[in-house]
Design a protein around this nucleic acid. Structure first.
Length: 484
RNA sequence: CGGGGCGUAGCGCAGUCUGGUAGCGCACCUCGUUCGGGACGAGGGGGUCGGAGGUUCGAAUCCUCUCGCCCCGACCA
């Protein structure tokens, strides 16, 4: 399957999932670990994550949040305090039963998410309405013992951030839930060039212990949906379970309203599957580890020309770095330029500069665009001034391509037959009654689930459920789609 | 846990049926020629054939037991 012996990836159209599996290894994003289900994130993949962290973190700070860090281990009993939460997470907990050579009195769960342990401490930190809101976030690893795993999309251990906030009123907490969903949607659009649909999860798809779960859903190039970030309103569920109470302005005791919101390394999967093509990754410039790669081209038997090319490549790289471009000069020996072109295309670098003796004589470079595949001649002394704008434009084109693709594959269905047919080709808006049993039946029969009740979209007014004929359970038509 | 497949060099595989010097491609190392879309030649290094037991003069190959991994299904950011 894998292996550099073979020249290209399996084409997306032939087997999308094979394409994905090969690409994550061939682009040096991940490697297998000795423990099944967990993966090593290699430097190129981790650099992507670091860029995601940097930009998202800035957005969290800008919305008033502070970072902190909670421990990895959580007493088992904490999970039992919230009925839905324990039911949702028990099956996938990894538990430490022995330590220091002895069996522990109380087993410790490796966090699958931190609501419980954070709730325990929030109860201590919140006494008065003056202590609220608490607006905290942590960057952490979590573990969920999944049966079927895939790099980035579903791994037993994954990296994420989890925001946990506590508020005096439901209104404030609901606002926070929505605000952070918008942060995710904005990040996806402005940094990853991924268009998303914002919506609410139905009861069955809601986070274990939440009153409301909001989601951003992105369409992959196989037209399946990927839940790419979630934001939950917990109501008083966790504050009652963990006794997060405070005295309000009237000196009356009240329960805090809490939220949590998370965004994980799964999003790297979204980037891969939203933008990638048969040649490999196409990375959004703002998150790409290298925005520009310079491939110097030598000439046979001419050390002097080679030296000049190398020197010019370095000079060019410096001038690009000075205008804030992340640039890499590929000076590796023993590989032909063609080999390097293919490699950087596979790795999704937005722009490639080819610089050889001919260019030096003409005072130009060849600038290759990963998205269009086109090459343009650009004067060397204009490269540094033009590249930032080209990267900006690259981002816009990438987003637009994804947006058009998505919009071309969203349909609307009036009948169940229509839903069954259209969901084979993309996402489908349809009216649903909201009955969980009906939802389950539809999933059995079509493999599609309700991804969300979109915050914007066709109204359900005057329509009835495509499956049961009952009145709509929601104000809008829901989105049915096959999902990761 | 059900169904399917596979363990032989770093990776991908052949060899197993029919027992007899452990091979191929890629990768790696050295030297030379190359370098504008996955270069070529010559030389070289690398293996307890997943593990244990058995049959045999002789086992990657046959027998028994075991361990592990991958793929498909039931749960999920």
């Amino acid at each position: 399957m894998r292996g550099m012996s073979k020249k290209g990836l399996t084409p997306q159209g032939e087997d999308f999932s094979a394409w994905y599996n090969e690409l994550v290894y061939e682009a040096d994003l991940v490697d297998l670990s000795p423990v099944r289900g967990s993966f090593v994130i290699r430097p190129y993949g981790y650099a992507l994550w670091e860029n995601i962290q940097r930009d998202l973190d800035a957005m969290f700070k800008a919305t008033g949040h502070e970072n902190l860090y909670f421990p990895l281990l959580i007493p088992m009993s904490f999970f039992e305090r919230e009925a839905d939460h324990v039911e949702g997470f028990s099956p996938e907990l990894a538990v430490v039963t022995h330590a220091g050579g002895k069996e522990l009195e109380e087993p410790l769960a490796i966090r699958p998410t931190s609501e419980t342990i954070i709730g325990e401490l929030y109860s201590k930190w919140v006494q008065s309405y003056r202590d609220l809101p608490l607006l905290y976030n942590q960057w952490a690893n979590v573990m969920r013992w999944e049966l079927r795993t895939r790099p980035f999309l579903r791994t037993t251990e994954f990296l994420w951030q989890e925001g946990h906030t506590a508020h005096a009123t439901a209104e404030e907490a609901l606002e926070e839930t929505r605000r952070m969903l918008d942060v995710y949607a904005t990040f996806a659009r402005d940094y990853a060039a991924i268009p998303v649909v914002e919506g609410e999860k139905t009861e069955g798809e809601r986070f274990a212990g939440a009153k409301q779960t909001l989601t951003i859903e992105a369409m992959m190039r196989d037209r399946k949906a990927l839940q790419s970030g979630t934001s939950h309103y917990m109501g008083e569920n966790f504050s009652r379970a963990f006794d997060i109470t405070f005295n309000d302005v009237n000196n009356e005791q009240a329960y805090a309203h809490t939220t949590s919101w998370g965004f994980s390394t799964r999003f790297i999967g979204a980037i891969i599957m939203t933008h990638g093509d048969d040649a490999g990754l196409i990375l959004p410039p703002k998150l790409a580890p290298h925005q520009v790669v310079i491939v110097p081209i030598s000439r046979r038997n001419d050390d002097e020309a080679t030296a000049r090319v190398t020197a010019e490549a370095q000079r060019l790289a410096t001038s690009l770095a000075e205008v804030g471009v992340r640039v890499k000069v590929d000076e590796r020996e023993g590989m032909s330029p063609g080999w390097k072109f293919n490699e950087w295309e596979r790795k999704g670098v937005p722009l490639r500069i080819e610089l050889g003796p001919k260019d030096l004589e003409a005072g130009t470079v060849l600038l290759a665009d990963r998205l269009s595949g086109e090459k343009d001649t650009v004067a060397i002394d204009q490269v540094a001034s033009r590249v930032p704008g080209l990267l900006e434009a690259f981002h816009e084109r990438l987003f637009e391509r994804a947006r058009v693709f998505r919009d071309e594959h969203i349909f609307e269905a009036e009948t169940y037959e229509e839903l069954k047919e259209k969901v084979e080709h993309g996402w489908v808006y349809a009216t649903h009654c909201g009955d969980p049993e009906s939802e389950a039946r539809i999933q059995e029969e079509t493999k599609a689930t309700v991804r969300c009740i979109p915050l914007e979209g066709p109204s359900a007014e005057g329509t009835v459920c495509v499956h049961t004929g009952k009145p709509s359970g929601y104000a809008r038509k829901v989105i049915f789609a096959k999902a990761y």
